[in-house]
Design a binder for these strands. Structure first.
Length: 875
RNA sequence: GCCGGGAUGGCGAAAUUGGCAGACGCAGCGGACUUAAAAUCCGCAGGGCUCAAAAGGCCUGUGGGGGUUCGAUUCCCCCUCCCGGCACCA
């Protein structure tokens, strides 16, 4: 890196330009180059003397080019990072690439480019775009997940998970996307049954052997700790809560009835275990309903061709509904098996049915049907004429209502048991406990918890991903790759197709190995890992990105993560369940193996809204895509960034309008013009005094207009600072700066050209200009840096102190108080800010318009809200 | 069905604790500058009625209906529509 060039460019103070026109392209390319030459300005190292702040934006997939959603995401993060730097924090602000994944393989197939080459080319392009946009990332920590230096630690983690029984292999029904030609995790299937990448492609079910991670071991903690994340959007927490789907209930064994004409049910066993959340209604159970794929049903159907045909029909209906995404609206069908089960609480013999609304993959795939107290059971019983038996009555304060027969089905918990043997008369909630205890004592059931969350299937029959470090030996079975042999390198020369299973299986030199235990021949696992593994822990790697002995150093991670994790994480809400639940799981696992001490990865999460155009999501098919490159070329990076913050609050969707960014471009030009037009010739030779002192010396002698400008300045600093610390409505921050600029022009028009302009006025103007630059720095860094240099400042703007406001100087001296008569605005009076209530009301009553309005009426009430308004109620 | 978010001028939006609705910007209109245009600077602007016009005055207005209050975009109840998530989850 040429050192001498650098020092030359920073020393000279450029002449103030004569041209008022702001040439964004010239200025921005100048600073892009300078920042390029001194990348270390954004670097941070652990420093116990300074408060840390870890601000992170979700790392992108290198698809080829940034889109406006990226620009918005990074503009928010960059503004925050710059503000925190200026507020004296030790800021970590890294960036990287989530660079494994299917699109690279598709490119290989359609354009015949190797995935690695395609990916690295895209990364180079997007990195250049980021630099052109002026984002302040510490590139020395760049993480690229497709490099062996990174993915070897995925493999290392996998071995640790395997050692602890948290990674296991099992054959099961899995989601298969025909277009991806691979298995998908449950989290990657949309609610309409389609693939998350191919929203028009229905996922099929296939029976395959897969590697799973036992995320369900952490289900309870993942749920419980959501309460400890007040810095997360309620929406995301709710989504995760729904996804985990914890449900407390009871397992109850129903014995099969071996009546005289039956010889038992064979290997499937002699009991049916049902799961219920309402064991209090068990005396109202009038049938047992089984999922069509329940083992007992399969067993029965095997011996009964007629039943088998009917069950196959139910299975087909269920599958069809699932694939159409409307399993919730399936028309209920069922068939009786002709067999019976015994209700263990009343020894009653009830029929066993098979029904298409019972799901095999939830609970036990079997329920007790209580038509009187469950909507679905009621509908089903009505249809097939099954008995409906009332066992719960409402309890109410109204004696008439209590004990009255409710309309069916009656499904609430607020009730009392009847027709329930010794439990009659108990309240529902108490009965649930008692009945579960009894079942447990008798060995016929127990209280239990069921989750919707399933273990995470991570095997992918794809090439461009982390090889799973496992071997299969004819003699030793499943053998993990020894840690010393990591990384298992992903080979380069592989023929990629979307058919015929894992591409790696067709690479003999990769697939054929010797067993490290017996030395005999073994086969390597040729599936790769889900790319969500890569992104589950990447933010820890940023802390210590070049470590080749461990995923990262625990001490360094502890500094940056602290007790509560990343201070601010920013990204799209589309990862609310996927990435954000996986990485919480990974954090808990890493804590359990002693790598880290925090329980959660992210303290505060912010999900920004989408960028849309003409009311619709940007997409190639709609032809409404706005290209960041084009915006930067036309309006400049500052304008693109500032507009993405100005057009809407960051959590809302943003409708992109080209005319809007033109307005922002005008604003930037107007700022620049002010500095060129009204240069402050007499900058204080010494750095500006601490603010209080300057203010005190300025407060008195300023002319009224100057005082008004000073007040506006301090009010603006307050508004912008408050917003950074609170609600992040950067759109109003920018409005506030615009208002200040308007006031600056107004001030120059009215005063500064006149003879009233004295030294204090000049000093004030210098102060205002300096603070405007400081406040613009997080939002429009290019212009801010240029103006900073034009003002002759030598220090780094990045680390310059954020301006402080003086509440005294921000205060109004006179207030315009609205006067309402009976709640309607009728007039306004101007009073000194420190006026008493009596004085303000007296002035209000003396006002001509007020007098006219209340003439002939009697004032019955006088309300004064200090500093806000007067309301005179008349009769 | 359940959960979360939203609905304010022609448009994007603001109103931070119940206190002047529409800040700021876009589009629009008018003026200054200019041979002209662009650029720039200044001004007007929710809707309606009144007034010859202007100034002014009056009425009305934050998805709809009701309530609490001196006062409601803001709090409470009911309803409509839009966006997102979950869904015969037993």
């Amino acid at each position: 890196m040429p050192q001498e060039e650098k020092s030359e460019t920073t020393i000279t103070r450029p002449e103030r330009p004569n041209d008022e026109r702001y040439d964004a392209q010239r200025v921005e390319s100048k600073w892009t180059e300078r920042w390029q030459q001194d990348a270390s300005i954004y670097a941070a190292e652990p420093d116990s003397a300074k408060k840390k702040f870890y601000v992170l934006e979700m790392l992108p997939y290198p698809s080829g080019a940034l889109h406006m959603g990226h620009v918005r995401n990074y503009s928010i993060g960059d503004a925050l990072a710059r503000y925190m730097w200026m507020s004296g924090y030790n800021v970590l602000h890294p960036m990287g690439w989530d660079s494994f994944g299917l699109p690279a393989e598709n490119a290989a197939i359609s354009a015949n480019v190797p995935p690695r080459e395609w990916t690295l080319r895209n990364i180079a392009n997007m990195k250049a775009q980021m630099k052109r946009l002026g984002f302040a990332y510490d590139w020395s920590r760049e993480v690229t997940t497709c490099f062996p230096e990174y993915y070897r630690w995925n493999q290392w983690f996998f071995l640790k998970l395997y050692e602890r029984g948290l990674a296991y292999r099992k054959k099961s029904k899995v989601n298969w996307c025909p277009k991806c030609a691979t298995v998908l995790a449950n989290e990657q299937v949309l609610s309409n049954g389609c693939c998350w990448r191919h929203e028009d492609t229905v996922v099929e079910q296939r029976e395959l052997e897969q590697w799973f991670l036992r995320i369900t071991n952490y289900a309870d903690e993942l749920l419980r700790d959501l309460e400890r994340l007040p810095g997360w959007p309620e929406k995301v927490r709710t989504m995760q809560r729904n996804w985990i789907g914890r449900s407390e209930g009871t397992l109850v064994d129903f014995k099969l009835d071996y009546g005289p004409e039956h010889k038992g049910f064979g290997p499937a066993g002699s009991t049916i275990t049902v799961f219920t959340t309402r064991i209090d209604t068990i005396f109202g159970a009038t049938s047992v309903q089984l999922a069509p794929e329940h083992p007992i049903v399969i067993d029965l159907a095997a011996k009964n061709p007629d039943l088998r045909a009917k069950v196959d029909q139910l299975i087909a209906e269920q599958r069809k509904a699932k694939e159409a995404g409307d399993i919730g609206e399936i028309e209920k069908h069922g068939v009786p098996t002709g067999r019976y089960a015994i209700n263990p609480f009343n020894n009653e013999r009830i029929p066993i049915w098979v029904a298409n609304y019972i799901l095999m993959d939830y609970g036990t795939g079997a329920i007790m049907s209580v038509p009187a107290h469950d909507d679905r059971d009621y509908e089903f019983a009505e249809k097939y004429g099954l008995e409906i038996r009332l066992v719960i009555l409402p309890i109410s304060n109204d004696p008439e209502e209590t004990m009255a027969e409710p309309p069916l089905p009656f499904t609430t918990h607020d009730g009392m048991l009847i027709n329930s043997g010794i439990y009659s008369g108990m309240a529902c909630d108490a009965a649930i406990k008692k009945l579960a205890e009894f079942a447990e004592q008798k060995g016929i059931g127990k209280a239990t918890v069921t989750y919707r969350l399933k273990d995470w299937g991570i095997s992918r029959q794809r090439y461009w991903g982390t090889p799973i470090p496992m071997l299969y030996c004819a003699k030793d079975g499943i053998v993990p790759v020894p840690e010393k042999d990591l990384p298992v390198i992903l080979p380069d020369k592989v023929e990629i197709t979307l058919t015929g299973g894992s591409p790696l299986a067709r690479v003999p030199e990769f697939a054929n190995v010797t067993c490290p235990r017996c030395g005999g021949p073994a086969r390597r696992e040729t599936d790769t890992m889900d790319t969500f593994v890569d992104s589950s822990w990447y933010f820890y790697r940023y802390c210590d990105a070049r470590n080749d002995r461990a995923p990262f150093d625990s001490k360094i991670a502890q500094y940056w993560f602290g007790e509560k994790g990343i201070d601010q994480y920013i990204g799209g809400v589309e990862h609310a369940i996927l990435h954000l639940i996986y990485s919480r799981f990974w954090t808990k696992f890493m804590r359990d193996i002693g790598l880290i001490t925090n329980d959660e990865p992210v303290e505060r999460l912010f999900t920004q809204g989408m960028v849309i155009k003409d009311g619709a999501k940007m997409s190639k098919s709609l032809g409404n895509v706005v290209s960041p490159d084009e915006m930067v070329a036309r309006y400049g990076a500052d304008a693109a960034r500032l507009y993405s913050l100005f057009a809407a609050p960051p959590d809302r969707d943003l409708d992109w309008q080209d005319s809007g960014i033109e307005g922002i471009q005008r604003f930037l030009g107007r700022v620049y013009r002010f500095f060129v037009r009204y240069p402050v010739e007499t900058l204080p030779a010494t750095p500006l005094q601490p603010r209080q002192e300057t203010s005190a010396s300025q407060a008195a002698p300023l002319c009224p207009q100057a005082r008004a400008l000073q007040r506006k300045l301090h009010q603006t600093i307050k508004r912008v600072s408050d917003d950074f610390q609170g609600r992040w409505h950067f759109n109003t921050c920018i409005s506030a700066i615009m208002e200040l600029l308007n006031a600056m022009y107004g001030y120059e028009d009215s005063v500064a050209q006149s003879s009233a302009k004295g030294e204090n006025e000049t000093r004030l103007l210098a102060e205002v200009q300096r603070d405007v630059v400081l406040m613009l720095a997080p939002f429009a860094p290019y212009l801010a840096h240029e103006l900073w240099e034009m003002m002759g400042e030598k220090s780094s703007l990045l680390k310059a102190s954020w301006p402080k406001y003086d509440p005294e100087l921000a205060k109004e001296e006179e207030l315009e108080i609205p006067v309402q008569i009976s709640g309607k605005l009728r007039s306004k009076v101007v009073v000194p800010a420190d006026s008493t209530e009596e004085f303000v009301i007296e002035r209000a009553l003396a006002d001509e318009k007020v007098k006219a309005t209340i003439a002939g009426k009697q004032v019955i009430k006088k309300i004064y809200v200090p500093g806000k308004m007067v309301n005179l109620v008349v009769k």
